[in-house]
């Protein structure tokens, strides 16, 4: 296990966890989301093969109202 930051909160994930697995673990499966790791956009097509490293900062964002 190692720790990563998900939306500024610490989360423990198994070694070699992918973004796909994180999305399910964090409760965002089947929702309209977009993801960045360490400030860099990760396309949906890469969720399955992008593994997370210790101290990675993951942003999972959803639609909200904006002006």
């Amino acid at each position: 296990m190692h720790n990563i930051m998900v939306n500024n909160q610490t989360m423990a994930v198994a070694d070699n966890s992918t973004i796909s697995q994180l999305i399910t673990l964090a409760g965002f499966a089947d929702q309209a989301i977009a993801v960045a790791v360490n400030g860099e956009f990760v396309p949906k097509a890469q969720y399955g093969q992008t593994t997370l490293s210790h101290n990675d900062a993951v942003d999972i964002v959803k639609p909200i109202g904006g002006g």
Partner: peptide
């Protein structure tokens, strides 16, 4: 219409109602 993207705390996830 304009809209945006923001982080959402997993514990307060309200699904896709707004979307």
């Amino acid at each position: 219409i304009t809209l945006s993207l923001r982080q959402q705390n997993p514990a307060k996830n309200d699904g896709d109602a707004f979307w």
